[in-house]
Design a protein around this nucleic acid. Sequence first.
DNA 1: GTCTATAGCCAGATAGAC
DNA 2: GTCTATCTGGCTATAGAC
Lengths: 201, 201
Amino acid sequence: MSDNNTEEKILDAAINVFQSKGMDGARMQEIADKAKINKSMLHYYYRSKQKLFEAVFKTAISIMAPKLREIIEKDEPLFDKIRNFTNGYISLISKHAYIPTFIIQELNRNPEILQDTFIKEFGNSFSTMKTTINEMVENGEITPIKPEHLIINVIAMSIFPFVAKPILKSVLQKDEKEYKLLLEERKTHVADFIINSIRLK
Amino acid sequence: MSDNNTEEKILDAAINVFQSKGMDGARMQEIADKAKINKSMLHYYYRSKQKLFEAVFKTAISIMAPKLREIIEKDEPLFDKIRNFTNGYISLISKHAYIPTFIIQELNRNPEILQDTFIKEFGNSFSTMKTTINEMVENGEITPIKPEHLIINVIAMSIFPFVAKPILKSVLQKDEKEYKLLLEERKTHVADFIINSIRLK
DNA sequence: GTCTATAGCCAGATAGAC
DNA sequence: GTCTATCTGGCTATAGAC
């Protein structure tokens, strides 16, 4: 994609550079080089580094947010939901390995970005999921657990291995290929692990 | 601490600034201001921004690594190990909230830093823990699980809530106080959740 | 729309007085 | 050891020709 259109070539290159270097580390010259266009074109199309960054950030969110909504909103049995999310999300991130770290990094740098791009994505859809989980606990269908912790656990086990890849590779003494294999296994492992913990025996 | 000694005042201020802004976002002037010393003192004591950064990075690692070794090396029953680690690590990070994000961010920026400061911390102590877990599986003491996944799960659920705090606060619609309470609960919740998953019923 | 040239600023680093 | 003043380079951004 984007072999012709200059604006798209810029955005693609900007995604590449911003996501690996962050806002502060990124250089407009590097983006121009990667896009194989003149540096002043960046300003012609996006006015400023800040505006270009915002376009990249929104793109990143738009890739990650829908699947997150899915787990929260879709009407299906909880265990299916967990299996679909972990499998789907780990697959998705495998194709966009830099995005979670990028979002986390920039969000910690400037937590207010959320107000504009993120919060309204969710509204109060979380509260319905919360209700569902609480009902399952009350009906004795799963072990007692706070919905908040369950959600954090699901997300943490899915995303953290990507974010902390360098540390985990080192601690576990895995090479690139072995680590990739572990991530692949986690598409099913994470759901098994969670369901094993909350289901009644 | 560090009310007199200039070098210490610099390091304290540098820790503060580098850990919240990262290498690229940090400014020597801001460090000097926070340390209430003249900017050129930074160079007098640490030669360059890079060298000062390395000192800060090593400090961060030296705060986080020992507890990580503990879980891997200490000779105690697995379930105790898990309880001690999650409780101990979450408590530790609560006092140094910026460190995990800082380490992850800088490690993704430059994965080679590890070679110098990190890998040798662990040696092959991981392999003994791996053996222990595999033996427990074989002896039917816990559910079948790859040691790698168990370790990733423990670390992920302990650390991720700090790293992804802005997102999770937003998704779960918690204010600062409520989120702090969740983190507090996780000191015991995480271990319960894990043990509940791997113990035999 | 695309290029070259350059303005303007800011940050890291150093020289040198005290 | 600590300060002021300044150099130097690199980066964003723009002016202006084509």
